[in-house]
């Protein structure tokens, strides 16, 4: 029952915020790491970074195609516009690295 509700709410919010079929992938910033480290998505999908750490972090693409700062207890999103393999890291803590694989 509860699972059904969550699916329904998720489906409704997907309709409200994104084109049909697009999904949101959540990446936590926790204990100076992206969790999960590797994600895959499609063009049009949304990546949502949730920072639950003590300090601000960034999601900065090595190829500079995105550079987002996320303060503690904040969430920021990025809509994927092009396919490709994107390595990214935190400018403040370069020991934090992640990867997004974007399919067309």
């Amino acid at each position: 029952m509860r699972a059904g509700m969550i699916v329904l709410v998720a489906a409704l919010s997907a309709v409200l915020v994104a084109p049909a079929g697009a999904k949101t992938v959540t990446v936590m910033m926790d204990n100076v790491a992206y969790v999960p480290v590797n994600i895959s998505a499609r063009v049009g999908d949304v990546i949502e970074w949730k920072n639950v750490d003590l300090v601000a972090h960034t999601a900065t693409a090595r190829d500079k195609s995105f550079d987002i700062t996320i303060l503690p207890n904040k969430t920021r999103t990025l809509t994927l516009k092009k396919a490709g393999e994107f390595d990214y890291y935190c400018k403040f803590h370069p020991n934090m690295t992640g990867h997004i694989s974007v399919k067309p």
Partner: peptide, 16 residues
């Protein structure tokens, strides 16, 4: 332990 991870990040950033 959390502090150590943050400060290891600072060490790398400082090196850059």
């Amino acid at each position: 332990e959390t502090g150590l991870k943050i400060f290891q990040g600072h060490e790398q950033h400082a090196e850059h």
